[in-house]
């Protein structure tokens, strides 16, 4: 608990915002399906009703409750993101660490494989592959997304594992006769955990984005409720033209917010591990000007005392000479 609290204290503001945002959605995914007011599939005569006390987010064209669909959909979409994240990240760690550790021909081959997977556009391939699979549940989507989603992580993991492999402590444990798998598990992997975490977050982001897009165009299993399939049905019922904003805005907003949470979390992890990015934000305000740690020491002039218009200040704030401003004629 204490360790968690101290980690929280060190997290940059962006990452905290991301954690809170994601936490809300995870909570909704866990308790949502238990407390949904209606069966998301139940067809009622109350068609296309705007939000009311009985239906907080209104109803669809077939009278289904949008809120219930949304809560079930968040659960399903997050589940898919989690599964793909775990599977693809495991694959990328496996490939990346193996390539770095074995080196030589194996490294060349695995790197080549990685780059090929990176350069081939994923979505058309996903569509083609899912077009052939029989549509039963989320499993085909999860598998196909994982197969195509590991390459970026593997590349990053490999690069980092390569530098660690050549450090002294790895050489030392090799000299003491440690086995290869032990070196990988206990020497290399603990040192790239933050990288693996970042790659996991990225993969989840990709999986959710891709699965929603796939469902939206109707190549996923559209009989279960995920955020993408809600959008698919609302689009195919022309909810937009009918003015039924309560049908397509909530699921779209949910996807956007989950995505934002993940991106925020990732920039937070980035800042935690890259001091330069962190320093860049830690400006202090002295006499009305922002001073950055990376700035050269202002030896000439004095803090600006002139008054500028708002727009002029904005434009001026880009200029480094804002720090060295010699008081001009208006002074």
């Amino acid at each position: 608990m204490k360790a968690l609290a101290s980690l929280w204290g060190r997290l940059p503001g962006t990452a905290r915002a991301g954690v809170v945002l994601l936490g809300l959605f995870v909570l909704a995914a866990i308790i949502g399906p238990q407390v949904i007011p209606y069966d998301p599939n139940a067809v009622t005569p109350l068609t296309l009703k705007p939000p009311s006390a009985a239906h907080l987010l209104g109803t669809t064209q077939t009278g289904q409750d949008v809120l219930s669909q949304l809560l079930v959909g968040i659960r399903l979409t997050l589940e898919l993101g989690l599964y793909v994240g775990v599977l693809a990240t495991a694959l990328s760690v496996l490939v990346g660490v193996t390539a770095a550790f074995l080196g030589g021909v194996w490294d060349d081959f695995l790197s080549l494989l990685c780059n090929v997977f990176l350069v081939i556009p994923a979505l058309p391939l996903l569509i083609v592959m899912l077009g052939y699979f029989p549509q039963k549940g989320q499993l085909p989507s999860i598998l196909v997304l994982s197969i195509l989603g590991w390459a970026w992580g593997a590349r990053v993991v490999r690069a980092q594992a390569l530098t660690i492999r050549n450090r002294d402590f790895v050489a030392a444990s090799r000299e003491t006769g440690e086995r290869g798998w032990r070196i990988i598990l206990f020497e290399i992997i603990p040192n790239i955990v933050s990288l693996i975490a970042a790659s996991f977050v990225n993969t989840v982001l990709y999986a959710i984005g891709a699965s929603v897009a796939l469902a939206f165009i109707g190549v996923a299993d559209v009989s279960s409720w995920s955020l993408g399939t809600i959008l698919y049905w609302s689009q195919s019922a022309n909810s937009l033209q009918l003015g039924a904003w309560w049908w397509f805005v909530p699921p779209g907003l949910a996807v956007a917010l989950i995505g934002t949470g993940l991106v925020l979390l990732n920039t937070g992890i980035d800042e935690l591990s890259n001091p330069r990015l962190r320093d860049a934000r830690s400006s202090t305000k002295i006499a009305g000007s922002r001073i950055w740690p990376t700035d050269p020491t202002p030896v000439l002039g004095m803090p600006k005392l002139t008054t500028r218009g708002r727009l002029a200040t904005l434009v001026h704030s880009f200029s480094r000479s804002s720090l060295l401003d010699a008081p001009g004629g208006e002074f």
Partner: peptide
């Protein structure tokens, strides 16, 4: 100008980017 107004607007831009 990291930390300047344009830089601080990045989180909201991330939101725009996260919209499908």
């Amino acid at each position: 100008r990291a930390g300047g107004w344009l830089d601080r607007s990045l989180p909201s831009l991330m939101f725009v980017q996260a919209i499908p």
